[in-house]
Design a protein around this nucleic acid. Structure first.
Lengths: 137, 137
DNA sequence: CGCGTTTGAGAACAAACGTTCTTGACTGGT
DNA sequence: ACCAGTCAAGAACGTTTGTTCTCAAACGCG
């Protein structure tokens, strides 16, 4: 009953992953999200509760549907531009100040170590950190 | 001539390094700076021009007076909590969107590679990234 | 001392922030 | 076809943002 949703929640989540991978949490406004996702503010708040709620959803979706698949079946994918950016940004920026983000990021890094070994994991993180710098304007 | 300054510009800069090491650029407001530094808004703007001006000054001071000394004389210092945080945060958050920050961070990372070798540099960055996560609330 | 200049305290600003409200359009189930 | 319930469009809310203005107090120098 009621009018059906005009957007796909998962597609929006995936698109939000890209936005939050590019700009830090505090650097990305709700207006930016509304514009970049093409979804109305109301729908965003109805669906995700708050900006932080959306961020948490995005982070969990990313860990489960992007990072974890890359780890468990196609580790070459970790070299690509956008596979580690959100984790990197979350670890440096939000994790220290948000317990929930910290826990998610912490276990993701532990998983990274399990699969690749601590040394290779660090090599990868360092490499991706450097690559981020020249993502241009 | 005129009233003398009630604060030491370098001491304030050093204190600002600590603040910008803990919270991201967009997560740290001018009010936070005014409170944390104990310096009036007016004095901050008179001395550094803008928030970004202060950040740039802070970043340069940090690279020259904290990171560089650690690299060129006491590499053990790199293991300490606060020696790499600002670089890490700047690389992940601001560098991709601010050309000037990007250039500074880029050459700092290059210098890190020169001194430690690329592998050890990455190990260090990865290690520090993990440590950041549990910096608590 | 007193003039000229600069600092520091705080109010003020417009713009942007995250969030909520009002309203009208839409659709599925009876 | 109707009604109940959800949606979308956008205005509106109060707060916080970065920055600037006003003005009195504090000095160095003649």
């Amino acid at each position: 009953m009621g009018r059906p949703r005009g957007f796909d929640e998962e597609a929006v989540t995936r698109q939000a992953v890209a936005l939050f991978s590019a700009r830090a949490y505090d650097g990305l406004s709700v207006d930016d999200l509304v514009t970049g996702l093409g979804v109305h503010r109301n729908s965003l708040y109805k669906t995700f509760g708050s900006k932080r709620g959306l961020y948490l959803t995005v982070l969990r979706w990313y860990l489960r549907h992007k990072l974890e698949p890359a780890l468990s079946s196609d580790t070459a994918q970790l070299q690509e531009n956008d596979t580690l950016d959100l984790l990197l940004l979350a670890a440096a920026e939000q994790a220290p100040h948000d317990r929930e983000v910290g826990a998610l990021v912490g276990s993701a890094l532990a998983r990274l170590d399990d699969v690749l070994g601590p040394d290779a994991a660090n090599q990868l993180l360092g490499l991706r950190l450097r690559a981020r710098i020249n993502t241009g304007e």
